[in-house]
């Protein structure tokens, strides 16, 4: 009901300004009635404006405040996240430095180890080669000695064979037979 009255007043003021103007001209000499009219008119205008536009404005500003709060929270969250990322990056950078230092240390240790190993290997190879050489030399000397001994033995045997062939007598055969018979006798007694 109130809304209807207010709306009718607004429409009347808007569509019939002549009455208001006439009154204004009539009251141009500073009439209290005109002042009251304008005051009431303004009050109606202010009321209508507050009545209709107020909730909308309040809602608009409330929504706007919520949105601003949300944006603010998001911004703060993003800021915190960015700060965390920055801290993480800084930490990683610091970790990388440590890792590089550690790797360098490991590399140096491995190099030392490999050098030591190569040195040991070289030493053992040298020892092995020295030992093999000694063995080979000994074997060569032994083989040479055996060859010489074998050759001398063959020569001696050939000489002995020739000597026996040319000087063998029946008496020698008899002595050999006697020896052979002794062996047979021993065999028979077993």
């Amino acid at each position: 009901m109130k809304r209807g009255i207010a709306a009718a007043a607004l429409v009347a003021a808007a569509f019939f300004p002549s009455a208001a103007m006439a009154a204004e001209e009539a009251e141009s000499h500073g009439s209290w009635l005109m002042l009251a009219f304008f005051a009431i008119n303004f009050a109606i205008f202010a009321f209508v404006l507050a009545y209709f536009a107020g909730p909308l404005l309040r809602k608009y500003f409330a929504d706007r405040a919520i949105l601003i709060h949300q944006n603010l929270a998001k911004s703060q969250e993003a800021l915190a996240e960015a700060q965390a990322l920055a801290r993480g990056a800084a930490a990683r950078a610091a970790g990388l430095e440590q890792e590089v230092a550690k790797l360098k240390q490991e590399l140096e240790a491995e190099t030392d180890f490999q050098l030591g190993r190569i040195r040991e290997l070289a030493a053992s190879n040298t020892e092995r080669i020295r030992r093999d050489t000694a063995i080979t030399a000994a074997a060569m000397v032994d083989a040479a000695q055996r060859n010489v001994r074998g050759h001398l033995a063959a020569v001696a045997a050939r000489l002995a064979r020739d000597l026996i062939s040319s000087h063998f007598l029946d008496a020698d055969q008899s002595r050999l037979l006697d020896g052979f018979m002794d062996r047979l006798g021993q065999e028979a007694r077993r």
Binding site: R149, A153, A157
Partner: peptide, 10 residues
């Protein structure tokens, strides 16, 4: 003789 030769040859 063969045995002697072997002994001599070691």
């Amino acid at each position: 003789l063969a045995e002697a030769q072997l002994k001599l040859a070691g």
